[in-house]
Design a protein around this nucleic acid. Structure first.
Lengths: 168, 168
DNA sequence: GCCATCATGTAATTAGTTACATGATTAG
DNA sequence: CTAATCATGTAACTAATTACATGATGGC
């Protein structure tokens, strides 16, 4: 389970509430791991029980800010350095691209155009994230943006080639 | 759930046994979706119940070969064209890369070298898959290989840059 | 006053992993 | 003969999604 360590990692750079963590899973971490609030709140509870995080403040509307503990940092390092990474990937978009050839040309075109539009939207999102990061004086999560902005043109080129092949 | 449609997609290009499908999830589809045999066999049963696949032959050791039906093809097209794609991704390797900066330089180096070694192994695997495909007279699953071989250099360059930054 | 967003939680269901279990065939 | 691979299945458990549920705060 990477959720545990993803949450720990987010808290390692900044204390946050469950709500803020949920937002980070939807922005900076969205190309690496997904989790919704119904998973995050119970996980914070379990991490606190294990002594890896602790509540360091309470705010409006019953919000609680969590911070990583020394034990949490140790656990995170251990996981990153010593635990053999699980290489399994789950990416529905990739599945769809790889099955594309099964469709008749006209349907392929529809799907390819949808995907091209999506890469454009994604690029806009990444550029905005990048701006936020630069204005904020640099952030630990730059890799998501950097790698995203570098791999997007490769993806777009492939989609465009498939479209061109349909025409020519 | 993409498993259902991934299985349907694999059967759409070729009838196969559950065992063969399991192998394909570990090779051609490994960068898009993962599934183990304990998930695949029950799914084949459910697909058969829905009338999307059928048994078209029995072989040694109780093996059963499944093929997609017309109904299955229709369902697959519907899913690919009409169903709004789920864009959530789960990739533990990406999580690890994005948390890298949390480690002290010497540990970063260890991890970066492990990851560089992994990209090399992956490239070898992709090249071998590519050879198999070319010798087999071309295969529908070429996109996995093509995109993999194109994105790998981007990944490797990023890893190398991080390493260089540690040194210089 | 009302709508958007902030903020948290739980319950029911479905998906996925790990472990258990069995046996046939084939290459060396 | 024996180890690797082929081939299938189920059970127990863990992870993740979807749906239900509630209420505060702030801007207009």
């Amino acid at each position: 389970m990477s959720l545990r360590h993803a949450v720990l990692g987010l808290l390692a750079s900044h204390p946050a509430t469950g709500y803020e963590l949920t937002q980070k899973f939807d922005s900076s971490l969205s190309h690496a791991w997904h989790a919704s609030h119904s998973q995050i709140y119970p996980e914070l509870g379990r991490l606190a029980e294990s002594g890896f995080v602790e509540v360091v403040g309470e705010g409006a509307r019953g919000s609680r800010t969590f911070a990583i503990t020394d034990g949490g940092r140790a656990e995170l390092s251990r996981w990153m350095v010593e635990v053999e990474p699980t290489r399994t990937v789950r990416n529905e978009t990739a599945v769809r691209w790889f099955l594309l050839f099964l469709l008749p040309p006209e349907e392929q075109r529809v799907v390819l155009e949808r995907e091209l539009a999506h890469t454009a939207a994604e690029e806009a999102m990444l550029r905005e994230l990048d701006t936020v990061i630069v204005e904020g004086g640099g952030s630990p999560f730059h890799p998501t943006v950097t790698l995203g902005l570098r791999t997007l043109p490769v993806m777009r080129a492939w989609l465009q080639e498939q479209l061109d092949a349909l025409d020519g």
